[in-house]
């Protein structure tokens, strides 16, 4: 650790060096800055052009092509009533998005949602107060070098995982309903089977897993044996309608499903006592 006097002396030296040997910002450094800025603006314009000319006015098609190179111009209009849309943030939040799958709800999910981002922010802010050595050459700062490599790798992996995470399609999940009914033994209960179909098609499996189907997005719990707790269908249907009433502020409200479907869902969940 260099004393503050040392660091002051070094900075004074730097100021003198730059004064005597430095170059004028204009035009030398400004030339580089201008060239780089033109490159940036060109890249932005190029991205906008590729995005526009490889997509169509219809949100679902891309001008007759199978998929848009840079995504569609917009998706369907927002509809709070639909429940089978898989939420997905912009790409620079993917790493956080994927972190949430690592932590399980409800005990450790706070770590993923708030804990790790806060810790990262604090580390960044205190960095210049922790690393007070005068040394700036990278090869003589092994800790900083290793930390940088690890951060880049983990951010890259998390972003990639978040980008490629498979979301279960309702049309695929619904095919598993007969298997569920058989394994859980509620095949004779019409309400439970109907509830299983609601479960499969309403986007529940975007966040929950059930007998190996679905993804544990946001660290939401596995529901294969949720009915073991012994709470009846009414508990589950009111819970799903408004989870915040039970202190769960992560899960969205599903009141839009309507009373019938909520009841069926409640029967299905209370009958899910784990595979026999």
């Amino acid at each position: 650790m260099a004393s503050i006097e040392d660091r002051r002396a070094q900075f004074t030296q730097y100021k003198q060096d730059v004064k005597s040997r430095g170059k004028s910002f204009y035009p030398y450094a400004m030339f580089h800055d201008t060239v780089m800025s033109l490159v940036v603006v060109s890249v932005i314009i190029a991205l906008a052009c590729v995005w526009y000319f490889t997509s169509g006015t219809d949100p679902n098609t891309c001008g007759g092509k199978d998929s848009c190179l840079l995504g569609p111009r917009y998706s369907e209009p927002a509809d709070p009533g639909t429940t089978n849309f898989v939420p997905r943030p912009d790409w620079y939040f993917y790493f956080l998005f994927y972190l949430l799958r690592i932590f399980k709800w409800p005990n450790t999910v706070i770590l993923g949602t708030v804990g790790i981002p806060t810790i990262l922010l604090i580390i960044l802010i205190v960095l210049p107060f922790v690393d007070v050595r005068r040394e700036r050459r990278l090869l003589r700062r092994p800790v900083a070098l290793i930390a940088a490599v690890l951060v880049v790798i983990s951010m890259g992996v998390l972003t990639y995982k978040g980008a490629t995470a498979k979301e279960a399609l309702a049309s695929e999940v619904v095919q598993a309903v007969p298997t569920w009914a058989q394994r859980q033994g509620f095949a004779d209960d019409k309400d439970a089977v109907a509830g299983a179909t609601v479960f499969a098609t309403s986007g529940c499996t975007a966040c929950h897993t059930y007998l190996g189907t679905g993804s544990s997005n946001l660290g939401a719990p596995d529901l294969s044996a949720i009915g073991k707790s012994g709470q009846g269908p009414n508990f589950f249907s009111t819970y799903v309608a408004d989870p915040s009433k039970y202190g769960n502020n992560v899960m969205p409200k599903f009141a839009a499903l309507g009373q019938t479907k909520l009841h069926q869902l409640g029967v299905f969940l209370s009958e899910s006592k784990g595979p026999k």
Partner: peptide, 15 residues
Amino acid sequence: WDQTAYWATVVGINL
């Protein structure tokens, strides 16, 4: 205000 926007925000606010 499309589906992508709406549902990402639902989850973001809940988080």
